[in-house]
Amino acid sequence: MRKQMIISVMSKDRPGIIASITGAIYRLGGDVADLNQTVLCGYLTMILSVSFEPEVTKEDVLAAISHIKTDCKFEVSIKEVAHNPEETEIEPPETYILTVQGPNKAGIVHGISQFCFEHNINILDLATTLKNDQYTMALQLDLTRSASSVETLQKELEEYSRQSNLTVMIQHNDIFQVTNEVSLH
């Protein structure tokens, strides 16, 4: 049984980071199952799900990544996971998109994420943009564990909009898919 590891890497962005990291993993016999990366303010962060032969240790992986020649040192964190993460990642049948728009101020992300937490809503994806001092946030949400219905959440978010001076809306993900993608699901 191969060993599963979740590896996260942060570094100043430059060409070749993914090639270097996956090269080090490849030389250790690792198989990258999944990889997600994003760049923010010139910094890259990525998270990888990798399987290795049982004799490969976290320390081996860390040493291999640390030996990569680079101007900016990689900040690396590695976790061994007991089982194949794919088994637990079941896409919920229905997801919702929550959008937040308004003038930039401190605490917007916290306020919304706290709202989600209090309603037992899992945030699957989140993206924000700041343009002309207008803050925009879009979240993909899984409501399956929440005790509140969508109608209740909509009403509460209307109230939240009024109090926070933000425009907050929640809408079924299918609407966004059908209006933006060519294929009709």
Partner: peptide, 16 residues
């Protein structure tokens, strides 16, 4: 997830 601008275009269409 879709891009934010696509999401916002749809939100505009529905809500406003």
């Amino acid at each position: 997830m879709l891009r934010s601008d696509q999401i916002l275009a749809t939100v505009e269409m529905i809500q406003k």
